[in-house]
């Protein structure tokens, strides 16, 4: 049974695309068939973060409009063969995304893949609402910063009202992914602590992605951080997140853990 997951946040620049790439690659590494879909029409970037920017021929809009077949538009990752990318259009307008068209594409993706991961654009307009429309699971990406938390709260409200599941009286399974977290600064009271964010947003924690230079390094190289720097702290956090998403109980390995991981292992579990 395929699962559709939306990576969303409301605010821009918090790490949606980075997280989509990292989660998608990590899921595919477990042998699952994964499609990552870029919904940011006009400002696509998932192709760049995945290192596939030079291989884009057709895009989501082409498939929505029937100009290309889904198979023609899907780009298979060169590192993990079960990982595929459906890029967004860079030139067309987001108005080309029709509700019926998106539904058709999502349904075909459900038939072919185990996980369909939709990378939402920032904001709460058409692209964002269509990206979350058919989701079974939502990963809400949030930075420990007031504007990001406010926007996440708004997005949680939309997930509870504007999705297909919500309209059927069901619930989209929601998870918080706290990114760019600097534990030392949180302890000093300079930024909000994970407990504060959880308390305010009241959705369960999926993982804490620590602030790390490895994230930028990997995006420079065009590799999801879970592939480009698999032993780094952010990659390990994404791998834990994937284990949780697939229903595995996360067993914390203590010996190689940094102080940060030790401090947060219990809360993250």
């Amino acid at each position: 049974m395929a699962k559709v997951l939306v990576v969303t946040s409301g605010k821009g620049g918090v790490g949606k695309t980075t997280s989509t790439a990292a989660l998608g690659a990590a899921l595919a590494q477990t042998g699952k068939k994964v499609a990552v879909v870029d919904f940011d029409v006009g400002l696509r970037n998932l192709d760049l973060i995945m290192g596939a920017e030079r291989r884009v021929v057709f895009d989501l809009i082409n498939v929505v409009k029937g100009d290309a077949k889904l198979e023609q538009a899907l780009i298979r990752d060169k590192r993990v063969e079960t990982l595929h990318l459906l890029p967004a259009s860079q030139t067309r307008d987001k108005d080309n995304l029709t509700e019926e068209g998106v539904e058709r594409v999502i349904n075909s993706l459900r038939e072919r893949f185990d996980w369909v991961i939709c990378d939402s654009p920032a904001g709460i307009e058409r692209g964002a609402t269509l990206a979350m429309r058919h989701a079974d699971v939502a990963v809400v990406v949030t930075n420990p910063e007031v504007s990001s938390i406010r926007d996440s709260d708004r997005i949680i409200g939309l997930l509870d009202s504007k999705t297909e599941k919500a309209e059927k009286g069901e619930q989209v399974e929601k998870h918080l992914l706290l990114t760019r977290y600097d534990n030392a600064r949180a302890q000093r009271g300079e930024i909000l602590k994970v407990e504060d964010v959880l308390d305010i947003l009241s959705i369960p924690l999926l993982a804490i992605i620590p602030e790390s230079t490895e994230v930028l390094r990997s995006s420079n190289l065009g590799a999801p951080v879970t592939l480009g720097s698999p032993n780094s702290a952010p990659a390990r956090a994404y791998l834990d997140a994937v284990r949780k998403l697939t229903g595995e109980t996360v067993v914390e390995v203590q010996k190689q853990r940094s102080l940060f991981s030790k401090l947060f292992a219990r809360r993250a579990a």
């Binding site: 406010r150 009271g189 300079e190 909000l192 602590k193 504060d196 305010i200």
Partner: peptide, 15 residues
């Protein structure tokens, strides 16, 4: 530097 509690309270009221 302990601005975080202020942020927390402002957010709680606003939301």
């Amino acid at each position: 530097n302990t601005s975080a509690p202020v942020a927390r309270e402002r957010l709680q009221v606003l939301l």
